[in-house]
Amino acid sequence: MNLSVDISEKIIYRHIRKIEILVYILFSTYIPVNYGVGYLLFYINTIHKSKYLDSILDLYSLFIFGIYIWIIYIYRLKIKKAAEPVYLIKSNEKNGFTYPMINGNLVFLILLIAVILSAFFDMYGLTGYELIPVYLFFVATILWFVLIFGTLYRSIGKRKLIGVEILASIGFSVGYLGGMFISSFFYIVFTVTWLFSGIYLFLENERDTHHE
């Protein structure tokens, strides 16, 4: 049984690593690229600032975040499905594979409500409630991070975190917390570290594949 578990783990581990590469590259580029496009579309090309511009921007953000959340959800399902067989075999073993105990659907719902509430308050100009969706969004994103990367990092119990994964975790913590509470410029830390981790792992994967 050990040989079969070892072989299946190796296959699944490599597959998960490929998903991880996509997660790093996509997450680090998706929001900055879309905000860049939004800026070009709505500000640079708008000579007379329309009174509806803020509402249009809110709808645009809602659309961008909607797709973002959906992509995260699909990735999580993919990782979970890939790692399921190893979990089934090793579930009773000490130090074996374990799923994080957070309910993914619940976090998904909180994240979605936060984004919709935020757009709703902005569109109807309701003041005094702005911080509610911000905090909801913040809590949900942190939970998502634990959920996605808990699943990703702990997907195969015996493997250790590698350097770029530690860098990505630090990049997320510093970039996201800093961006949320100190200055938007901190988001750059998140983008740069994740892009670096993604490209590094992609090149490593390509090198291994062509080496054979």
């Binding site: 578990v5 070892d6 299946s8 190796k10 597959h15 190893v86």
Partner: peptide, 9 residues
């Protein structure tokens, strides 16, 4: 092992 791996992916 190959079959279990393929079952997941």
């Amino acid at each position: 092992g190959i079959l279990i791996g393929l079952y997941g992916i």
